[in-house]
Simulated scan of single mutants.
Amino acid sequence: MKQLLVIGIGAGNPDYITMQAVKALNRVDVFFLMDKGQSKDTLIDLRRDICARYITDPGYRFVEAHSPERVRGDTDYNASVEALNRDKQRTFERLINDHMADGECAAFLVWGDPSLYDSTVRILQAILESGRCRFEFEVIPGISSVQALAAQHKVPLNGIGRSIEITTGRRLAQGQVSDADSLVVMLDAQDAYQQIADQELQIYWGAYLGTPDEILIAGKLKEVAGEIERVRKAARLANGWIMDTYLIRKPESSQ
């Protein structure tokens, strides 16, 4: 039986790799790398560096494949994501069928944690349900950008006995209302934090967490929102991409 590992590699710092992940890396014969274009070559390079750092037997190999892109613009978001995952499913099936021998172990190295805003596990489950590939797979958790953000800002995610909600910038921009005391926002391409009515809330923002390019900004939303917008635009222009996450919290006195 072919074996697949979905390994969470953390939010950017090679030191975020867990001992479980190191053991998993050393089981792998072939690593599947999804190429997202020249501007994101650093993401591929980091995966290669992690393998070089932690794998003791150099007998593994890499197979790169073009990563399908989601259709953007004036289109139905859910439908576009479903189409994207179907395209990825076909790519994954080809990789498994064409680049793995029976009995081999392959791995997808997932940024952050495979359970949080990543579709690799969902896609592998769909492949198994389709019956077009036969394999077994395991999931190895990783340190997410949410955990890294809180650690770098030296703050807890939650107030004592209080709730946390994790959402996306898209939902926030569409008017999502939350009564959570701590709101973590990911994948915000629209600077949706500027639409939050209570500008007295505290925001902890971070980009490229765990990498040499890491940027951190914190303060009252009304005081730092403009700075975050400027810094975010400049960083995206300079690097060609950006991964950022932020935490919005009510002041301790109001919790």
Rank of each mutant, 00 (worst) to 15 (best):
M1K: 08
G10I: 00
P14C: 13
T18W: 04
V22D: 01
A24G: 09
L25K: 02
N26A: 09
N26V: 11
F32N: 04
M34C: 08
T42S: 14
R47K: 07
R47L: 00
R48S: 01
I50R: 03
C51L: 05
A52M: 01
I55C: 15
T56L: 00
A65G: 08
R72L: 14
R72V: 15
T75M: 09
Y77G: 00
N78V: 12
N78E: 14
E82F: 07
L84I: 12
N85H: 14
R90L: 12
R94Y: 00
D98A: 11
C105Y: 11
A106C: 13
A107M: 07
A107L: 02
W111C: 03
P114Y: 04
L116Q: 10
T120H: 06
R122C: 10
Q125W: 11
Q125Y: 12
A126V: 06
I127K: 05
L128F: 10
S130L: 15
G131R: 14
G131Y: 12
R132S: 10
R134N: 11
G142T: 04
V146H: 02
A148I: 01
Q152L: 09
P156I: 06
N158G: 08
G159Y: 03
R162V: 00
S163Q: 07
S163E: 07
R170N: 06
R171C: 06
V177Q: 15
D179V: 04
L183C: 05
V184M: 05
M186H: 04
L187P: 03
A189I: 02
D191M: 11
A192R: 02
Y193F: 15
Y193Q: 02
A197P: 01
D198M: 09
L201A: 06
Q202A: 10
I203W: 08
G206I: 03
A207G: 15
L209V: 00
L209H: 02
G210H: 05
T211V: 05
D213R: 12
L216W: 03
K222M: 05
V224W: 01
A225F: 05
R230W: 00
R230T: 09
R232W: 02
A234R: 05
A234W: 00
R236V: 00
G240A: 12
G240D: 10
I242Y: 00
I242L: 10
Y246K: 01
S254R: 14
